[in-house]
Simulated assay, not measured.
Amino acid sequence: MEKLIYKNGLLYTNVFLSHDGKEVIVEDVIIDTGAFHTIISPVFLEKLDTEVSLDDEIINAYGLGGGMCSSLRKRIDKIGIGGINIEDMRIDFGEIDPEDRVNGLIGLDFLKAAKIIIDIDENKIFLKD
C-alpha cells in the first residue's frame, strides 16, 4: 500500500526509477487513469545519466487539448511507487508541464501491469490480491 497526496484536485505520488545501476526519485507525479502511457520529465532521464539506445523510439502524442508533443520512449530497468515495482518497462520521457509543476504522469500501462487498486476515499493505492 502507498499513500497518495491529494492536492490541486489530483492524486500525486513519488516514483522511483532505476536504470543501468543508477537511481532517481521523481516527486510530484500524478496518478492519471486518463493517460494511456506513463510519461516522466526528460530532466530525470538526464539524472539517470543514460544514453539513447537502438531500441528507443520517438513518440508523438496528443493531449486532451489536442496539442501534439514528442517524447522518447525508453525501456527502464525498474519503475516503482513505494514497494510496488515493475521491471523492464518502457516509459516516455517528454514535456508534461511547461511550467514544471508536474514531473510526470503514471498512466494505465503501469497501473494495469502492477494490478493497482486506487482507494479514492483513503487516497491510497495497493496491489490487487
Rank of each mutant, 00 (worst) to 15 (best):
M1D: 10
E2S: 13
E2K: 12
I5D: 09
Y6A: 11
K7V: 07
N8R: 08
N8T: 04
G9K: 07
L11A: 08
L17Q: 00
H19L: 02
K22N: 12
E23L: 12
V24H: 01
V24S: 04
E27Q: 09
E27N: 07
D28H: 08
D28Q: 14
V29A: 04
V29R: 02
V29E: 04
I30D: 02
I30V: 12
I30A: 00
I31G: 06
G34W: 05
A35L: 04
A35D: 01
F36S: 11
H37G: 13
T38Q: 02
I39A: 06
I40T: 03
I40S: 00
P42Q: 08
F44V: 10
E46Q: 15
E46R: 11
E46S: 06
D49R: 15
D49Q: 11
T50N: 04
T50K: 00
E51R: 09
S53V: 10
S53H: 11
L54D: 11
D56H: 05
I58Y: 04
N60V: 10
N60C: 14
L64I: 15
G66D: 07
G67E: 13
M68K: 10
S70L: 06
S71E: 06
K74W: 00
R75D: 08
I76E: 02
G80R: 02
I81R: 03
I84D: 03
I84F: 00
N85T: 13
I86T: 09
E87H: 09
R90I: 06
I91N: 00
I91L: 00
I91G: 07
D92P: 03
D92H: 04
G94W: 01
G94A: 02
I96E: 01
P98K: 01
E99V: 13
E99K: 15
D100Q: 12
R101V: 13
R101I: 14
V102I: 12
L105E: 03
L105K: 00
G107M: 05
L108Q: 09
K112P: 09
K115L: 08
I116H: 07
I117Y: 05
I118S: 09
I120Y: 10
D121Y: 15
D121T: 14
N123S: 14
N123Q: 15
F126P: 05
L127T: 15
K128S: 11
D129F: 15
D129Y: 08
